[in-house]
Nucleic acid binder design. Structure first.
Length: 479
RNA sequence: CGGGGUGUAGCGCAGUUUGGUAGCGCGCUUGGUUCGGGACCAAGAGGCCAGGAGUUCGAGUCUCCUCACUCCGACCA
C-alpha cells in the first residue's frame, strides 16, 4: 500500500523531519487553536472547543454517575490562604500570577490567580463540614487555571489552561484511597474506551508527586516520538491539608476528627495527547467518540443535477446514526478530502453521479484510508461498525507503538545504551531512593514516569546503586 | 536569568549590502469556466514597513534607544 503512505497534504511538516513542527502545524491547520497576544496563552478555536466539549461531557457524565456534584469557585486566592500548606505553596509559588491592584487602588493583600484550587476548597470545606453525616463531599469544578510557565506549547503547556479539578473529603482514609483509585480508573477508562489511548496506571515517586500530596497516581501515555505524557492525575492527601486548614467533623464516636481528602484532574493537555498519539503526516486523526463530526459527506460534481439533493437526503438519513457534516462549499472535492483529513474526521463519505446511479456511496476510513463501497440502504447499519473499526484500529496502532518502544534494563550499561539510542519507556527495578532517581536524570536524562500497578519482577537489585530493589519503575522523557 | 534570531498586507516572506513612487505567494472579494486527491482565467480590496529619537533634500533601508515575539540553554506537578 505504498500509495496509502503517500503524503497528500503539503502544508504539514512530516513528523520524521521535525516532530515539534509537525505538532504545531496540526494545531494550526486543523483549526484547533490560535496564539493570543498574551504570552503563552492560547485561543481554543471552535473545532478545538468542540473536541474539548465532547471530552468534558463524557467525563462529567462519569463523575455524576459516581455521585459527584459540580461547583464554581473563585479564580483568586489571597496570598495568606495559599501559604497555609507549606509543601503546596513551595510547589506552586514560582509559577503563579499575582493581582496587586483593584482599579487604581493597591490591594492590602495580593491575590494569586488560581494555579489549582485545593486551598479554596479546603477553606470552604472547613466551613461546611461539621458532622460525619456531611461526608463524603464529592465536588468537582470545570474552570481554567493559570501557571506562569517559562516555555509553552499549545495544549501541552500553556500559561492558562482549561481543566476539571475534583476535590473530595471522606470520613476514613480507606474511603478516600478508594476514591483516589476510582477517579484514576475513570481517567484510564476515558483514555482507552473513548480516546483510544492506551495508558499505564501507576503511582508517582515522592519526587514527582503533587505538592502537598501523600500519594499521587497517574496515567501515562506514550506519544509517537516515544516521549511520555502524563494524561491525568489523582491525589490522596491523607489528612494533611485538613490539618493545615483546620477541617474537622464530629465523628460517630462524638470526637472531633479530620477528614481524608483527595483531588484529581484532567486538562486540555489531553488534546495534545490525542494529536501526538493518533495524528499522522496528513493531519489529525480523531477518535470517533470525541470527533465533532464523525462523518463528512463530500458531494462530487455537485453542480450536476440531483447530486446536492442526494447528498442532502443522505445527511438526513444519517442524522441520529452519527454526528455528520455535509460540505456543499464551492471548494473542489480534492480540497475537501485534504481538509477533512487534516481535521481528522473518522469517516469520509463520497457521493457522486456514479454512486447515485448505483445506489451506493464510498466510505473512507481516515486512519488507513481504506475505501468501502456501501449500498445506501445498508449505510446506517454499517456506520457504527466502521466507527468502531477506526477506534480499534487507532488504539491498536498506539499500543503497538508503545510496545515497540518499551524496553527493560537490569544494569547501568543497559540503561545508558537505552538513553543513547532509544526513545520510549524503560522499565527497571529501583531501590526507592531519591539519590538514584536524581542519578537517572543526570546520567541518562530520564525521569520516573510511575511505578505501575502491574508490577513485574525483572530483577532483585536497583541497577543504579546495586542495593535491594523495592519496585519496578517506568522511566522516560516527558512532555 | 545567559546566549542567538526575528518584527514589512490576515498568514508566510522578499526588499536593507549600495537611501530615491511598497513588492511576491497564499488567503480574501466579484464574475466566469470547473469538480472521483488541495482546479483555472480575469478583475479587485487590503500597509503608521513594531515604537521613539536622530542623520539626510529624501529613511522600510543608516545611527542610537525602547518594546514585543521566538529559538537554544537554565528553571519547571
Amino acid at each position: 500500500m505504498a500509495d496509502n503512505k503517500k503524503k497528500l497534504v503539503e502544508d504539514i511538516t512530516p513528523m520524521d523531519v521535525d516532530f515539534a513542527k509537525w505538532y504545531t502545524d496540526i494545531v494550526r491547520k486543523a483549526d484547533l487553536a490560535d496564539y493570543s497576544s498574551v504570552r503563552g496563552c492560547m485561543i481554543v478555536r471552535p473545532y478545538g472547543t468542540a473536541i474539548w466539549e465532547n471530552i468534558k461531557n463524557l467525563l462529567d457524565g462519569m463523575f455524576k454517575e459516581t455521585g459527584h456534584e459540580n461547583v464554581m469557585m473563585p479564580m483568586f486566592i489571597p496570598e495568606g490562604l495559599l501559604q497555609r500548606e507549606k509543601d503546596h505553596v513551595e510547589g506552586f509559588a514560582p509559577e503563579v500570577a499575582w493581582v496587586t491592584h483593584g482599579g487604581t487602588e493597591e490591594l492590602t493583600e495580593r491575590l494569586c490567580v488560581r494555579p489549582t484550587s485545593e486551598t479554596l476548597f479546603c477553606e470552604h470545606f472547613a466551613k461546611v463540614c461539621n458532622s460525619y453525616r456531611d461526608l463524603p463531599m464529592l465536588y468537582n469544578q470545570w474552570c481554567s487555571v493559570c501557571r506562569w510557565e517559562k516555555t509553552t506549547r499549545p495544549f501541552l503547556r500553556t500559561a492558562e489552561f482549561w481543566w476539571q479539578e475534583g476535590h473530595t473529603i471522606h470520613e476514613t482514609a480507606e474511603e478516600a484511597m478508594q476514591e483516589t483509585e476510582q477517579q484514576l480508573d475513570c481517567y484510564a477508562q476515558l483514555c482507552e474506551k473513548f480516546l483510544a489511548i492506551p495508558v499505564i496506571k501507576g503511582r508517582k515517586t515522592d519526587k514527582e508527586k503533587f505538592a502537598g500530596a501523600e500519594r499521587t497516581y497517574t496515567i501515562e501515555a506514550m506519544m509517537h516520538d516515544g516521549k511520555a505524557l502524563q494524561s491525568g492525575t489523582s491525589h490522596y492527601f491523607g489528612d494533611g491539608f485538613a490539618k493545615a486548614f483546620d477541617i474537622t467533623f464530629q465523628g460517630r464516636d462524638n470526637k472531633l476528627q479530620h477528614p481524608h481528602e483527595t483531588s484529581w484532574g484532567m486538562s486540555t493537555r489531553i488534546i495534545g495527547a490525542i494529536i501526538m498519539t493518533h495524528g499522522d503526516d496528513n493531519g489529525l486523526v480523531l477518535p470517533p467518540a470525541i470527533a465533532p463530526w464523525q462523518a463528512v459527506i463530500v458531494p462530487v460534481a455537485q453542480h450536476k443535477p440531483g447530486v446536492l439533493e442526494a447528498a442532502e437526503n443522505l445527511k438526513q438519513q444519517l442524522s441520529g446514526v452519527c454526528r455528520v457534516k455535509l460540505d456543499t462549499s464551492d471548494n473542489s472535492p480534492g480540497w475537501k478530502f485534504a481538509e477533512y483529513e487534516m481535521k481528522g474526521v473518522p469517516l469520509r463519505i463520497e457521493l457522486g453521479p456514479k454512486d447515485i446511479e448505483q445506489g451506493q456511496c464510498v466510505v473512507v476510513t481516515r486512519h488507513n484510508r481504506e475505501k468501502h463501497f456501501i449500498p445506501l440502504n445498508e449505510l446506517n447499519a454499517q456506520i457504527p461498525a466502521l466507527l468502531k473499526k477506526v477506534h480499534d484500529g487507532i488504539y491498536q496502532m498506539a499500543l503497538e507503538n508503545r510496545e515497540n518502544r518499551t524496553f527493560t534494563a537490569a544494569t547501568m550499561e543497559e540503561i545508558m545504551a537505552f538513553a543513547a539510542e532509544k526513545s520510549g519507556f524503560l522499565k527497571t527495578m529501583w531501590c526507592g531512593s531519591l539519590e538514584c532517581e536524581m542519578a537517572m536524570k543526570e546520567k541518562a536524562g530520564l525521569s520516573s514516569r510511575c511505578m505501575p500497578f502491574e508490577q513485574e519482577q525483572i530483577g532483585e537489585i536497583c541497577p543504579i546503586c546495586g542495593k535491594k530493589a523495592t519496585a519496578m519503575v517506568v522511566w522516560g522523557r516527558a512532555y
